[in-house]
Write a protein that binds this DNA or RNA. Sequence first.
DNA 1: AGCGATGTTCGCCG
DNA 2: TCGGCGAACATCGC
Length: 262
Amino acid sequence: MPELPDVEVYRRVLDSTSLNRRIAEVATYSDKVLQETPPEAFRARLSGQRITSSLRHGKYLFAGLLSGDHVGLHFGMSGALAFLEEGEEDPRHERCALLFQDGSRLVYISQRQLGRLFWIEDLEGFTRARELGPDALDADLDFHSFSRRLAARRGSVKSALMDQSVLAGIGNIYSDEILFQAKVAPTRRVRELGEGEVAGLYKAVREVLQQAIEADAQPEAMPPGFLLRCRAPDGACPRCGGSLRTVKVGGRRGYFCPSCQG
DNA sequence: AGCGATGTTCGCCG
DNA sequence: TCGGCGAACATCGC
């Protein structure tokens, strides 16, 4: 379930389990998720290394190594990261594993193989090449720069929120949530939003993502007023109880409440 | 059996 | 040039 909050949870998993440990060996089970680096090279560069830092930018997780290089993890639509102790069973769709000396391992899972692992020597060049905008929770992203970045887009506000070059980290689920909390319909054009609405969106971006992280990105643990807990074809609005509607925006299905979101 | 799914990229079209 | 759209990727579950 990898949008910004999910990836932040994975970052914390990596941080609390794998930091400063020596990678004894690397197992790769899918050339597909490694398509940019030959598997032998990937294994060789990582073996014997130590993870010294973790960093998240939007939906990307980066593990900093002692050498100064980074491993980049992107989870696609169905990826996950898990730390397993020795003897714990391999999960399904395990595509790569960092094996530590005590038999524990950090496992990269990607069911549909839409996720990717990257070997990165120039982190800044990597994010530049992908045209990633600032992280949606970047402390330096003030309201002024948020509205300026948003205003550069002409299409629907949902597409703009999901555009990783505008802000990095928001996908289909959380763009719906942000729009719901800000009471803005997904199909509204960015150009026609009032200043108060843009301010509401800015606030909602912060609050929604922050609260989702606090809930460990688990829908059941999120506030009862969250739309994503009701995100189903027959779902009811958590605020007014009315029926939710869906609409196709930017090729994705968005859920919204037609009476709460003007 | 068919369709859609938390993402990204590409080609086509207006 | 921009944006919208559909397809493709691979797999699972409804």
